[in-house]
Design a protein around this nucleic acid. Structure first.
Length: 127
DNA sequence: CCCTTGACGGGCT
DNA sequence: GAGCCCGCCAAGG
């Protein structure tokens, strides 16, 4: 029968997209910020910016596994406008801003000041 | 299996 | 220059 020969093992490339996002995020140096789209583009999923954010959220949830949420400095990742759109997912609404300020990053009106100057592009900074 | 939501981005109006 | 709409990837109901 034409059993739908299920592919014995056509496991889609387990592109641990999440782990990959976490890794890139960890490479973001303190005092610098990057954007979801930049990470997504660096990973090949130029249009997967949203997925990047999802991965970061999962990262915080997996913080226990990572030992510490600081392992993934998600506060250094903002949207393309430099806005702290993910602040609502931190323990406190101001945690993200405070962490950035603790690194010398000025935040005004929920947005990174001199975002373009502090912007850290993985595709450019990383080999 | 289909529909909706979500830490986004880019294009058009 | 700001606002609106559509598109992408993944997960949950």
């Amino acid at each position: 029968m034409k059993t739908p020969a299920l592919p014995p093992a056509a496991p889609p490339p387990e592109r641990n997209f999440f782990a990959d996002v976490h890794a890139v995020t960890r490479l973001v140096p303190p005092g610098r910020v990057t954007s979801y789209g930049a990470i997504a583009h660096y990973l090949g999923a130029a249009r997967g910016a949203r997925t990047v954010g999802y991965a970061l959220m999962a990262a915080n949830l997996d913080a226990a596994t990572l030992r510490r949420e600081e392992a993934v400095p998600a506060h250094r990742v903002v949207n393309r406008l430099g806005q702290l759109t993910g602040r609502g997912h931190f323990p406190t609404p101001t945690a993200m801003q405070e962490r950035l300020e603790a690194e010398g990053v000025q935040v005004a009106d929920d947005a990174v000041v001199d975002f373009e100057k502090l912007f850290w592009n993985p595709a450019t900074e990383l080999p």
